[in-house]
């Protein structure tokens, strides 16, 4: 029973710590965006020189004429009420930022989760095999895979997959999230989940087919990191003292690999999983562009082009919040796996 309580206590402490983390992130987002060069009001005029009174009026409307600390307090209080402001860019002018983000978030979540599944499963399997078969031909091939796949640009691999699997072979759709107008009934906005909820296998199949290439692209690129980390950890744990001791107790070799070496090799991997999610989101921006997926990555690109400061701010806030949430979950996951973390 002590086990459950210490885990709960750890989760609670870790959860409380997430609050100052989030505050610092929100503050950083605010100030970084304001010291960046470029005036959002001028950007609205597309490089032409607007009349000064119009600039004044626009500044007032956006609250940019107020002192920075007041702007900061305004921003913070609104973020906590869930109000991310309205867009000031040319594409979504006047529309609520959260509305635009929330309508695109499901696409990004679907892509990210799918890619992470691909990355971790491919990476862990290759890493374990590579580590357990050290210095064999297979190990050399897998080590090469880990390095090469990690340095391949996402857009290049994406385009390659589109050419091979969509155009040459015609197995999978080349881009987008859906075909036709018969969308699944929107509940979560994620087409795979929604089609499962309405128990429609045809819909699910369509959603899944559209996910395969983008998730494979982003997932494989990220898997290289897992291959290398898991392999390095396996080499350490497979010769660890407790593995030798298990050997001496007559535990079969296969169980030493799966039960002792593998589980211990995963602990450091779980710890860096949170960081991988941050890299994953950066990769998702490029993947969404490559596969024309209308997610928040694509929205971010558009907003940067039009200097839509509130939209950029809103997207970064959402990204930051998700990362804080994900690392919280992952840290708790780490504590479930490794009892020493709960101390």
């Amino acid at each position: 029973m002590a086990r459950g309580r210490s885990l709960l206590a750890y989760a609670a402490t870790r959860g409380l710590l997430a609050i100052p983390m989030l505050l610092i992130l929100l503050t950083a987002v605010f100030f970084i965006l304001r010291v960046l060069p470029g005036d959002p009001v001028l950007a609205l005029w597309g490089g032409r020189e607007p009349p000064p009174e119009i600039v004044e009026a626009a500044r007032h409307e956006l609250g940019l004429d107020k002192p920075p600390w007041l702007q900061y307090l305004d921003y913070m209080s609104r973020v906590f009420r869930g109000d991310l402001g309205r867009s000031i860019g040319e594409f979504y002018r006047g529309k609520p930022v959260w509305g635009e983000i929330s309508s695109r978030l499901p696409a990004t979540v679907e892509l990210s989760v799918g890619s992470m599944l691909v990355a971790s499963s491919v990476g862990i399997v290759t890493g374990v095999v590579s580590g357990a078969r050290r210095d064999t031909r297979l190990d050399v091939v897998l080590r090469l895979y880990g390095t090469v796949i990690w340095v391949i640009p996402i857009f290049w691999l994406g385009v390659l997959f589109q050419i091979v699997f969509a155009i040459w072979l015609g197995w999978l759709p080349p881009h987008g999230r859906w075909q036709g107008t018969d969308f699944p009934h929107p509940v979560t906005g994620m087409y795979t989940i929604d089609s499962l909820l309405e128990r429609n296998p045809a819909h699910f199949w369509t959603a899944l087919r559209h996910l395969v290439l983008p998730c494979l692209t982003l997932g494989l690129v990220l898997s290289g990191f897992f291959t290398k980390t898991v392999r390095a950890n396996m080499l350490r744990t497979i010769t660890a003292d407790y593995a030798e001791a298990a050997h001496a107790r007559g535990v079969p070799g296969r169980k030493i690999v799966t039960r002792h070496a593998f589980r211990n090799a995963l602990v450091p991997v779980v710890t860096v999983l949170g960081l991988q999610f941050a890299i994953l989101f950066a990769g998702a921006v490029i993947t969404e562009k490559t596969f024309s997926i209308d997610g928040i990555g694509l929205l971010l690109l558009e907003s940067v082009v039009s200097k839509d400061m509130t939209m950029i701010q809103g997207i970064v806030v959402v990204y930051a919040t998700i990362i804080v949430g994900v690392s919280l979950v992952i840290d708790i996951l780490g504590a479930v796996v490794d009892p020493r973390i709960r101390l």
Binding site: D241, G250, R259
Partner: peptide
């Protein structure tokens, strides 16, 4: 034979038990 007819105990007991497993699981495994 290992662990059944012949058993071995090691020098450093602090590193010889799997840190992720309870004592119960160590015994059951053996």
């Amino acid at each position: 034979v290992r662990g059944k007819d012949v058993a071995l105990i090691f020098q450093d007991p602090t590193t010889r038990l799997d840190p992720l497993m309870t004592i119960r699981d160590h015994f059951l495994e053996t």
